[in-house]
Design a protein around this nucleic acid. Structure first.
Lengths: 340, 340
DNA sequence: ATGAAAGCGCTAACAT
DNA sequence: ATGTTAGCGCTTTCAT
């Protein structure tokens, strides 16, 4: 039993296809009597409209394509939740793809999604290779690049500077009296934003005549377990550090757990610093420093931009929305910084 | 500048629409010379096919609709990652929607997604209201219900019994000598699976002449912070518990942090038990009990079912895939249980 | 190996 | 207030 079409509903209701279409869409100029007949027929037949036909015919879709690199920590799911919430009530629908931090896969996903004629596309980061950027530019739809500001946007850009985040954290830690630093990271070859934070952090260290006394970097993706493991290794090799900077909060939380197991006082002996401002960090048994990135807000703002961009003149819109992370977890650095 | 159509590519290549279509799709019976001409023209013009037209014309799509209740902890993102990975290479594309544990919103999302004529739909849980189930049944596509087994599936079912998971955990804890139980949970009105675990747990308690000495339940959604807060409250009221069962691992982790702050020995004085088997739990500074649910595997298996169902005869396929959670974190309960 | 005609299910534009 | 015509961009079917 095939699914009923608009035409079949129209026949059942004793009207033309066009009238049925108007009634179903709630367009004006349909007598309430006719509308009721059509709605009744549609309900009776379990009619569900065909958006393929609708979109093909009307030359526009309600699809917003979104590409994120990963779903294995809570960061991108929160961005997606923000986008989804920000789109609520607009009639638009997000379509997600996961690139696994793989540029070739990202390009294929983008190509695939563009074939669905989305009304906008949201991608992560500014570092797409030229071929991918080309694809995006030729789509002739609003392109929103999320999370990162350190680079040249194609169109719209919502995020924060990871270089500056690294710099800010280093300055805060030096101001807090720390001098002997270690770095624990993972997957830096793929997670370019983590690399930018590290580079910013090192710029400030060098400006103060300092540097990382020790680094532990693994190719695997970040996790609490990996942070714990690398920290244990690091402290066995260089026990006299007074601060460790991590690629993110997952790694940093693992670092805290390693210190607790080794009986190293946090933050008294070693200060632990991560990035993201995960909820987890606020509940941990010892304070660790972090840069709070407004992940959900970034998603919501991206959704707002999409709504504006598809409605109104794109040229009259701000091209860049800058968020500034707040540093938390260092004495005397309560709630500095703000979003703008 | 509008996007080029197949017809324009065909003209540019000096062939008919049909030949261009065949060349682009790699269908047989196209001379390699012609194929090259068409491919060159398509590349030159940055041609991207229009899937709306393709799907409308061919009467089939590569879309798999997926509805999950939440993105605010790592559980469903992992399921989605499993689905996405399981679909890789099939040419199918997942489309996600988030219902926020709201049945009305879920129904609207499902209705919306069905209008895109997906080739299959994956939803969370077995407890959709009749109206939603009707929608699903009338779609005439494979319906896969995830995570839960305690109920009547519409079509295919992949998951675990949460009632049994609660029972198993209670038995393990009683076997481990615990007798004075507390319960800490959240959002039970919406998270029905958490409620089923609690009910199973209580069935076993009652069978042993026991019950919860104290309960702390909040309407908010689960989080580490909430688990910590409710546990602090609970231990202030009833300090002599020897075990607390939580609605999930996020809440349980918060409970552990509360105990650490209060100087309560875990697991010596109080044993803490959650559900999910999050990575986090394996790195925590004290052992807590959990039921490991194979979230990613559930997603991957669902994707496999979809691939089979759209290719072959649905009737010849298994209707239910049962996973059994493993209990971890209780002495003597190493790696009991297995997936089947 | 290639092309022409018809049509997927809907809406836009133009009648009436 | 309702109906008619044309067409969205592609594939299917049937020729050649």
């Amino acid at each position: 039993m095939r699914k009923p079409t608009l035409e079949e509903v129209a026949i059942e209701a004793g009207v033309s296809k066009m009238t049925a279409s108007r009634a179903l869409r709630g367009v004006a100029d349909v007598s309430s009597e006719t509308r009721d007949k059509v709605l009744a027929a549609a309900t009776r037949m379990n009619y569900v409209g065909n958006r393929l036909a609708l979109s093909l015919s009307s030359q526009r879709t309600n699809l917003v394509a979104v590409v994120v690199p990963s779903m294995s920590n809570i960061v991108f799911p929160e961005v997606l939740a923000g986008i989804s919430a920000g789109l609520d009530g607009s009639g638009m629908q997000a379509v997600f793809g996961i690139s696994d931090y793989d540029v070739a896969k990202e390009r294929e996903i983008i190509r695939d999604m563009l074939s669905w004629q989305p009304c906008a596309i949201i991608v992560t980061g500014l570092d797409q290779p030229e071929e991918t950027a080309d694809l995006l530019r030729h789509a002739n739809i609003p392109v929103i690049q999320l999370m990162d500001l350190d680079g040249t946007p194609i169109d719209f850009n919502v995020g924060l500077s990871h270089g500056a985040a690294g710099e800010g954290m280093a300055e805060a830690l030096i101001a807090a009296g720390r001098r002997r630093f270690g770095y624990v990271g993972s997957a830096l070859a793929r997670d370019l934003r983590a690399g930018k934070r590290k580079a910013g952090f090192e710029r400030v260290l060098h400006a103060h005549g300092l540097g990382f006394a020790e680094q532990q970097i693994d190719d695997a993706f970040s996790s609490i377990a990996l942070g714990k493991q690398l920290t244990t290794t690091m402290l066995a090799a260089v026990p006299d550090l007074d601060c460790i900077y991590y690629s993110n909060d997952d790694m940093a939380s693992g670092g805290l757990f390693a210190c607790m197991e080794l009986g190293v006082a946090v933050p008294k002996k070693i200060l632990i610093a991560g990035f993201n401002g995960l909820d987890l960090v606020g509940s941990l048994p010892a304070p660790i420093a972090t840069s709070r990135s407004p992940r959900r807000a970034i998603g919501e703002v991206a959704a707002q931009l999409v709504r504006q961009a598809v409605m109104s003149n794109r040229d009259a819109m701000p091209k860049t929305i800058v968020f500034t992370p707040t540093i938390a977890g260092i004495d005397g650095y309560g709630a500095a910084g703000s979003a703008s």
